[in-house]
Design a protein around this nucleic acid. Structure first.
Lengths: 347, 347
DNA sequence: CTACGCTTTTGCAGCGCTGCAAAGCAAAGC
DNA sequence: GCTTTGCTTTGCAGCGCTGCAAAAGCGTAG
């Protein structure tokens, strides 16, 4: 591989110092038009391209942010990532992606010692099962923004929707339909299942507000929030002596799996069992039936997360920990409202 | 921010040279057990973490590979990415992700001057509309592996399945069902639509092999391969005087969109219209009906792509351009075979 | 006791860039 | 004419690490 063109080469050709070339390349102020042109010409003539590595070392930053999600192939995350990448790019940052496969150890390792010093300037983290302890052990110098609801100790930001309220709203929608036995799929009654537990809480609150108590055997735990889990859980529910007539699923994927089981058993959605999901992924707008869901403002979550992270990275004194609550709304589609709610070209 | 611990700090504490510390940290040979222990202790005591940036500069490589895809939220790509990231990580490489939004200019820019010198050591590229010209203009020093079928000029590798054969196979399956008027959704009859055109070719070949000629008005072009495109195209087909009784969709997303339109118009799949997709994304295994499809060996595509790229990166003399053809197979599910093919828990 | 070959350790230059502070320089002020 | 002011350009050190080649140590052979 032939030697690459360096600043010095350009400087020599243009007859200026390498520092001046650097100034031109970086668009710094106070360079006369005449000099700028000469340098510019030399840059083009030699095909100079800055060496990002050297710049990074000199500046002590990498210009990269890491985004860590449990699973990349979960539509919710890939949709979110898409917006994160766009937002980061606008500010000149590259995005390094990592998936933890939901492994708590992997998550912990990522946040704790940040062994890869300077590989990224900050991190947007969507933990699946990160407990408070792991958060406390984290590298305090690494700017951090957490996706999803989570109480902050003030040293990082988090961005998410109000899970409890959203879940209550979803459950209320099912209650409003007059359903009697409403199931919930997705609970995770252990330390790392905080997000799931907040949804269960909303589920209970909705019942309580009407003087009802949900039947405990209709609250089903699942290890993940994916289609197979949803399908399995639904099968289990249908085998109960008194199966539910409505289901609140903790993700759209779970809902898709549940619906799959219902349909394959010859049950009608929503006539026999109404289903509502969570996340508003594109699948739910084209599935049969289309899925009613809780729609978080993903674009806002993504841009806010990036914005806050960059603020943390660039500001000399770390800003206070912010808990950003992004808006969400209930979207009613066929899986609860029936065909009346559907159209040939779903939005 | 307090100063970080450097090699020199560790060296001082351990009473050795910084070069020796480097040797220990990197596990180089020829360090006595005694020295190694002393250094190790010092490393731990000070909490030393190597500065990746400095290492990168000194080594002249970044330890990162870029993966460029058109859209991150397309399940096919996110499923593929997942495997790519795993494979790269095993070899100690980080993955930088970028999406081009299918914009040919963006794609061209990425491959052409590679303006970000040394930000990544190589690139795995899944172009949507990259013509031969753009490929010819590319930075010849940047190791490159292309995903998807594409004839190589010998300076890069590409990995993909045999699109023509796979498409012929999919079409033959529909013909075997006795369908008379088979439509195709996803053609792209312009320079950047090579991938689509190969599928159309397979579609035609299947017909030709039986002495048939497909009806031209049943070959529908779409700008992308997504759900809305599929839904729209299907609506158009149904409005024809003689609508099709089977559809070959150039992606599973297109198939999902098409099925959505069919179902919402009260048509039965596959009784009224059989549908087959392409890609075998998870959605298709849980949709109603489940989707028959062409299943490329994604795991193999991903690992082969990484393997070849790393080979290019590390080998002194560039290896010959390889055209790797990954295996694929036809998977028959409900959308062509009816409920008989479905089960409560799809695989 | 010196020479030799081998392993282990060291010193130094340098990767290519930017931060910093000083130098140069032209126009303006006294 | 000489100093001051403000803009432009420069020189140099150094970011923290690794490549290279030489030096040091050490056991064995002559």
């Amino acid at each position: 591989m032939r030697r690459e063109v360096t600043l010095r080469d350009v400087a020599e050709l243009a007859g200026v110092s390498s520092r001046t070339v650097s100034n031109v390349v970086n668009g710094y102020a106070n360079v006369t038009e005449h000099t700028r042109e000469r340098v510019q010409r030399a840059v083009e003539q030699l095909g100079y391209r800055p060496n990002v590595l050297a710049r990074n070392l000199a500046q002590g930053r990498s210009g990269q942010i890491a985004v860590v999600v449990p699973y990349l192939d979960t539509p919710y995350f890939s949709e979110l990532l898409q917006s994160v990448i766009r937002a980061a790019r606008i500010s000149g940052y590259n995005v390094l992606i990592d998936q933890t496969d939901g492994d708590p150890e992997h998550e912990r390792a990522f946040i704790a010692h940040g062994s890869r010093r300077l590989l990224f300037d900050g991190i947007i983290f969507s933990p699946l099962g990160l407990d408070q302890q792991a958060l406390a052990d984290r590298d305090p110098d690494l700017p951090l923004v957490i996706l999803g609801e989570r109480s902050s100790d003030g040293t990082f930001d988090h961005v998410g929707i109000d899970d409890v309220a959203a879940s209550r709203q979803a459950t209320e929608h099912l209650l409003d339909l007059g359903r009697q036995r409403i199931a919930a799929i997705g609970d995770q009654p252990y330390a790392t299942g905080e997000a799931a537990q907040r949804r269960t809480q909303g589920f209970r609150e909705a019942h309580a507000a009407r003087g009802l108590t949900p039947r405990e055997d209709l609250i089903i735990s699942t290890p993940r929030f994916n289609r197979p889990d949803g399908a399995r859980a639904m099968a289990h529910l249908l085998d109960l002596p008194e199966p539910p007539d409505a289901v609140f699923c903790y993700s759209d994927l779970v809902a898709l799996g549940a619906i799959r089981t219902l349909v394959s058993r010859g049950l009608r959605v929503p006539e026999d069992v109404a289903v509502i999901g969570y996340d508003d992924i594109e699948d739910g707008r084209f599935s049969n039936p289309t899925i009613s869901t809780i729609s978080p403002d993903k674009e806002m979550i993504a841009t806010t997360a990036v914005e806050r992270l960059l603020l943390r990275i660039t500001s000399a004194t770390p800003p206070e920990g912010l808990e950003v609550r992004a808006p969400h709304r209930l979207i009613v589609r066929e899986s609860t409202a029936g065909r009346a709610a559907g159209t040939a070209s779903p939005r």
